[in-house]
Design a protein around this nucleic acid. Structure first.
Lengths: 141, 141
DNA sequence: GTAATTGCAAATACTTTGCCACGTA
DNA sequence: TACGTGGCAAAGTATTTGCAATTAC
């Protein structure tokens, strides 16, 4: 866990980003949450709310996404969700359209073959995918 | 094509919606485009731009989505894209993150089995999925 | 005639940016 | 010291709503 944060910070340093408190806490928050989070959620989270301005979180998210440390996802209500990219890791998500709960799916992702096929046929560069399942969770139903 | 529009209008009528020019043209536009469209795109499209206000298109999209005639997708830059739901039809999409081009993928969708598995295990109601591939198209690269 | 639908304009809700101060390297 | 970062507040953008007028049925 802490290991993952340390590694991510190191990657940031290599990319020329400065090691600031806001950067560390942002990454730690995302790692701890174990799920994608929005700007609003992050900015209001315990580690960040007192520490820095929302605009700072916003710009951090931009910077980290540009540098490939984070990825921005659509997920729920078309809000921007951010998640830490970990080499070799991929998640699909299950989202309750009632309460907005988001959880990562543990089952293996069945689309890598199709992704390869598309990569070859279409010659798109930097291809990746997002797979989301939507429904009403038992609690909302 | 015209057939699909007629059918969709009929479904709307059955649901108690009134047959207005705006409704017909909106559905026709969506069917002709053969791809999901945003509120802005729809409102600015030839068939609708002169015909009705953006707020009307907005409210039509809301109503049609609530009634299950349309579905709202995430796709690109977290804008809301709308697509006509046709019973038995499902599309996955390939999106260029450079120019925003969106195309439906013709290959069969490989996630239905996983969807069934999730439906059973989690007891979510009304489960469906979205699968998007993102990359840079040859023209943008 | 009645209730759904629409236009226009105003109100939200976020996202994004400018500018100067600050802190890391 | 220099340049990436951060705070605060303003600007921008798209979505959403109120209300009176209109239209489908």
């Amino acid at each position: 866990m802490q290991q993952v944060v340390t590694l991510a910070v190191a990657r940031c340093r290599e990319l020329g980003l400065r090691r600031t408190k806001a950067l560390e806490e942002l990454l730690a928050t995302l790692v701890e949450a174990e799920r994608p989070m929005t700007l609003a959620e992050l900015s209001a989270s315990p580690r960040l709310t007192e520490l820095c301005d929302k605009a700072t979180v916003y710009r951090l998210l931009q910077r980290l996404t540009e540098h490939g440390i984070l990825r921005r996802l659509g997920l729920h209500e078309r809000a921007a969700y951010f998640t830490l990219l970990q080499p070799g890791k991929h998640s699909d998500y299950l989202i309750c359209t009632g309460c907005g709960k988001i959880e990562a799916i543990k089952a293996p992702c069945p689309v890598h073959e199709l992704e390869d096929e598309i990569r070859e046929k279409t010659r798109y560069r930097g291809l990746y995918h997002e797979l989301e399942f939507f429904g009403i969770c038992p609690r909302c139903a």
